Amino acid sequence: MTRGTGRALRKWAIRAGGSALALALIFSLLPREAIFEGFARLTWPLFLSVFASFLVCHVAAAAKWWWLMDRAIGFPAALRAHFGGLAANLCLPGAAGGDAVRAGLAHVALRDGPRVAAAAVGDRTVDLVALVCLMLVGLTLIGGAGSGGFAIAVAGGILAAASAGLFLLPPLVRALWRRWPRLPARDLALRTAEAFAALTRRPGVLLAALALSVSIQAALIGLSIQLALVVGVNVPVAAWFFAWPLAKIIATLPVSLGGLGVRESSLAALLAPFGAAAAEVVASGLAWQGILYLAGALGALVLALSGGSFRTRPSAIKEMSE
Rank of each mutant, 00 (worst) to 15 (best):
N89W: 02
W65T: 06
A22V: 11
G74W: 02
E33F: 12
F54C: 05
P114W: 10
V50A: 08
K11E: 07
G104H: 03
A52C: 08
I35H: 14
C57S: 04
V59D: 07
G85S: 02
R111D: 10
A72F: 06
A103C: 11
A16R: 01
A60G: 13
I73P: 12
S53P: 01
F47S: 10
A109C: 03
K11V: 14
A96H: 04
S49W: 06
A96I: 05
W65E: 00
P31I: 13
H107D: 06
A61S: 13
D70F: 05
S53R: 11
A63Y: 12
I26W: 09
G74L: 07
L86V: 15
R15C: 14
A16N: 11
F36D: 09
K64I: 02
L110H: 12
R80W: 03
W67S: 06
R80I: 00
G104I: 01
A22P: 12
P31S: 14
W66C: 06
W65Q: 09
R71K: 15
L25W: 10
L23T: 12
L92F: 09
L23Y: 03
G38I: 03
I14P: 01
G94L: 09
L68S: 04
A22Q: 07
F27H: 05
F51W: 09
W67A: 05
A62Y: 04
H107V: 10
A61M: 12
V108K: 13
G38M: 03
P45Y: 03
G84D: 09
W66N: 15
F27K: 10
G84L: 00
C91R: 01
H107Y: 02
G84F: 00
L30S: 07
R115H: 02
R102D: 02
F75H: 08
W67G: 01
G74P: 07
G104D: 01
F83I: 01
A60E: 02
E33W: 03
L21R: 02
A78T: 11
G17I: 04
R115A: 10
K64P: 10
S19Q: 14
A109T: 04
R71I: 06
E37W: 05
F47T: 09
L79K: 13
I73C: 08
L86S: 10
A78M: 13
L29R: 14
G94P: 03
V56G: 11
N89F: 10
N89C: 10
L55T: 08
A34H: 08
G74E: 15
V108S: 11
L29V: 15
S28A: 11
